[in-house]
Design a protein around this nucleic acid. Structure first.
Length: 332
DNA sequence: AATCTAGACAACCGCCGACAC
DNA sequence: TGTGTCGGCGGTTGTCTAGAT
């Protein structure tokens, strides 16, 4: 069955011939592409003007696809670079299979190209590294425990904290949104208060929880203010260039996250988590968000708490949590 | 040499939202 | 408000090719 735009016409399908490409390029360079559905017809007229017998017997949709994915002059052909590959992985971790959005981070690359590269190459690499290509978490023998949380859902459902009582981030972000708490506390005391609640809730289930989550949450509290600029929690394991898999958390801005330059972006570093399965991912992301992510264990974190406030990100929006603890450690 | 298979890439299909009428 | 058209998108399929058997 043909497309709506060409159901009444006899159209050719399959691979494009060099002659067809030539006709399409000639048409686009002459008239541009204001209306794809009219391209084949007008292209045929153009060819008749040029004393050619046949026009362009393709549907408009096919013309559009051919132009965007192959004929556009600003396309970058050839293999993906390592940098591009890292960018794809990092953005995919945040956005999922939103290929068009991912492709926007890669000048000269198309969504189709990125998608094909992902399916034929990156996916297998991640699996080979023991990572789930869908979640970017470590593949586990056990079933994954998934806790999702964001402000929008929380605000529409005040009972969510009871649904996920032991998610440190659920709890924490919930508390941050609690105006009575924040208005009655200074920034630091609020942080302490929050941490007490959180760590006491999780101390039994989470092996060595306080040392890691405590510092992380303290950091989150300190970055908080009444202004609501976004801060995102992101990621868990990741593979810094030329380093083995490590875990921990760090703060980076969007740019550094995309380019995977951990050293410049890490301003907070925490000891390695005891459970490598523990992982964190974002609900969504924009260019203004900060990514909190796992970082290279070996980097110096001596400036951890001093610098993050300079980033200007100060509101914890929320995050979702993945984990794959054994049943006896199940958080709910 | 013929056939099979897997990988890479190109193209199509169906759905959806935006928009015009 | 309902309907049709269009462009954009993601999933899927088709095609080609190189390497293995």
């Amino acid at each position: 069955m043909g497309h709506q735009c060409c159901s009444k016409q006899k159209v050719k399908r399959g691979l494009w011939s060099p002659e067809e490409d030539e006709k399409l390029v000639r048409y686009i360079s002459t008239y541009g592409h204001g209306c794809w559905s009219s391209v084949p017809k007008l292209a045929a007229s153009l060819e008749r003007v040029r004393d050619k017998v046949s026009g362009l017997q393709r549907c408009g949709k096919s013309c559009r696809l051919r132009w965007i994915n192959y004929l556009r002059p600003d396309l970058k052909r050839g293999c993906f670079t390592e940098q591009e590959e890292r960018t794809i992985i990092n953005v995919h971790r945040i956005l999922g299979n939103r290929w068009a959005q991912i492709a926007k981070h890669l000048p000269g690359r198309t969504d189709n190209e990125v998608k094909n590269f992902w399916n034929s190459c990156i996916k297998k690499k991640l699996i080979a590294q023991g990572l789930d290509p869908n979640t970017h978490n470590l593949l586990s023998r056990n079933s994954h425990h998934y806790v999702t949380n964001n402000i929008a859902k929380r605000e529409s459902d005040s009972s969510i904290i009871h649904k996920h009582p032991t998610s440190i981030f659920s709890l924490y972000s919930h508390i941050l949104k609690d105006t009575s708490l924040s208005s009655s506390s200074s920034s630091s005391s609020c942080a302490t208060h929050d941490l007490k609640i959180i760590t006491s809730t999780n101390s039994l289930e989470y092996s060595n929880p306080t040392q890691n989550s405590h510092a992380l949450l303290e950091f989150l509290a300190r970055t908080r203010s009444s202004e609501m600029s976004p801060l995102m929690i992101s990621s868990g394991q990741f593979l810094p260039p030329n380093h083995s898999l490590s875990s921990g958390f760090g703060l980076g801005n969007d740019e550094s996250f995309m380019s995977n330059t951990s050293t410049s972006s890490c301003i907070l570093q925490l000891p390695q988590f005891e459970q490598p399965e523990t992982n964190f991912g974002v609900e969504e992301s924009t260019s203004n968000e900060v990514m909190l992510r796992s970082i290279d264990q070996n980097k110096d974190a001596s400036n951890s708490f001093e610098n993050y406030s300079n980033f200007g990100y100060d509101h914890f929006v929320g995050c979702r949590m993945f984990s794959s603890f054994d049943d006896q450690l199940a958080w709910d």
